[in-house]
Design a protein around this nucleic acid. Structure first.
Length: 194
DNA sequence: AGAGCGATGGCCT
DNA sequence: GGCCATCGCTCTA
């Protein structure tokens, strides 16, 4: 199998509002270069979180945990949650303003056997259809927190443009549940939820 | 198909 | 001590 990739998305891609980035990132390709080979998937679902948003980790101000959200845009904010899962975000917006886009689901493209091993399932639509599943499939954990997504082990590249984009309420939050900041490629079978 | 819930540990007050 | 930007199992229908 061959995976043809152009250069990663530039820093400027991430240097704008998280709500814009969460939409613009749909269709782009997430790539993890592991010791055992390349794992890649097309992003089909993402959510926006901003500093003035009560549902965001950045809402309380900068702490050691969420510091990446306040730093240079285009870095990986990987956090640990529910005692057993990791979630991947890209930092967005200007330095000093804590915001990011949560990558919730990808359509597997490459390294599918590795993903099946990591996830202990063979069902393609269940490999990375959720933020915790995605990190498990890609082998991402706290070691990847802070990585530069424009160059190196973990990168995001241009991909096939999405078809119609749908927006909906975000999933799994208690506060600010009214913001329609979850975006996904309409009718794509790899999103976490309709 | 949908509701309920346990697992499991770091982070913040 | 309480709260999670989750997941998968079990129970009810």
């Amino acid at each position: 199998m061959s995976l043809c990739l152009s250069d990663p998305l530039p820093r400027e891609f991430y240097a704008r509002d998280a709500v814009e980035v969460a939409q613009a990132i749909l269709g782009m390709v997430l790539v993890h270069r592991t010791e055992n080979g390349i794992i890649a998937g097309r992003i089909v679902e993402a959510e926006a979180y901003t500093q003035d948003d009560p549902a965001s980790h950045a809402y309380i101000g900068m702490t050691p945990r969420n510091a990446v959200m306040f730093g240079e845009p285009g870095h990986a904010y990987v956090y640990f949650t529910y005692g057993m899962y990791y979630c991947l975000n890209t930092s967005t917006g200007p330095v000093g303003f804590g915001s990011g886009a949560l990558i919730r689901a990808v359509e597997p493209i490459a390294g599918i056997e590795m993903m099946k091993n990591n996830r202990k399932t063979g069902k393609l639509t269940n490999l990375a259809s959720g933020p915790g599943k995605l990190c498990q499939a890609f082998g991402l954990d706290r070691r990847h927190n802070g990585l530069d997504l424009t160059d190196g082990e973990l990168t995001i590249h241009p991909g096939d443009p999405p078809g119609e984009i749908a927006s909906a309420l975000r999933i799994g939050i208690r506060l600010a549940t009214d913001k329609p900041w979850r975006f996904y490629i309409k009718d794509n079978p790899f999103v976490s939820k309709k």
